[in-house]
């Protein structure tokens, strides 16, 4: 599903954010990408959603080299990849329902479709009752659930989460991670960039370790390795 070959990324000349990454993530997998801040986790996710282009190497998603996508094809790629952010990135002036509906609106979905799908997604993250609250009236954990609902409402094949628990307390973090796990069980490929050691160890899933832009370890059913 996601194939990465000899991937390099330099933001400035000779400052490598990623060095020679080789990685294949299959359909339906759950993978953690771990590493210290600045190890290249976010860069990797940005490359996968084609927010930036690799300096060298190839990323294939659904069998296509995404560097070769035409500008108008990028939105279509992103509709198949849900994205969850550390800082939630919700629209504060819209209620929960509208925040989740946003994803469907940009694809031109009908309002009937929106009225059907948004409650389903909100039900899945356990926020059906808070559909008409504003984000500011919700706790951090609830806001992250809205963010997850927004990412999955159009049923993307891949869900990327960039430090999804970075702003949450441990109990809430576990809830969110369980939620991501549920989504994986329902069939989506889930990739979580994190440095939350407890969570990674708890789930016993595939762990890909980045350090200073290099891939130093990739284990099935792994644990968090602190390379340094």
């Amino acid at each position: 599903m996601i194939e990465i070959y000899h991937l390099y990324k330099e933001y400035e000349r000779n400052v490598a954010a990623l060095k020679d990454i080789n990685l294949v993530i299959d359909r339906g997998e759950f993978a953690f990408i771990v590493g210290a801040s600045g190890a290249g986790k976010s860069t990797l996710l940005k490359l996968i959603i084609r927010e930036c282009l690799p300096s060298k190497g190839t990323i294939k998603i659904f069998g296509r080299d995404i560097a070769r996508l035409k500008n108008r094809e990028i939105p279509l790629l992103r509709r198949n990849i849900g994205m969850v952010f550390q800082d939630f990135r919700l629209l504060q002036d819209r209620n929960v329902f509208e925040n989740v509906a946003f994803t469907l609106r940009v694809t031109g979905a009908s309002s009937r479709e929106i009225r059907r799908r948004v409650p389903l997604a909100l039900g899945l993250v356990g926020l059906k009752e808070k559909a008409f609250k504003k984000p500011s009236e919700l706790s951090g954990g609830e806001q992250q659930r809205v963010c997850v609902a927004r990412a999955i409402v159009n049923r993307p094949a891949v869900l990327l989460a960039d430090e999804p628990t970075g702003n949450l307390d441990p109990a809430t973090s576990m809830e969110i991670m369980n939620l991501l796990h549920d989504i994986n069980v329902r069939g989506a490929t889930v990739i979580v960039a994190t440095h939350a050691k407890d969570l990674v160890d708890h789930f016993q899933k595939r762990v890909i370790v980045l350090e200073n832009g290099s891939l130093v370890s990739d284990q099935e059913r792994g644990v968090y390795i602190n390379a340094r």
Binding site: I49, P75, L91, T103, R150
Partner: peptide, 12 residues
């Protein structure tokens, strides 16, 4: 930015 992330076209 969010619109771009969830796959809105530029014209949208």
């Amino acid at each position: 930015m969010i619109m771009k992330y969830v796959g809105a076209t530029d014209w949208f």
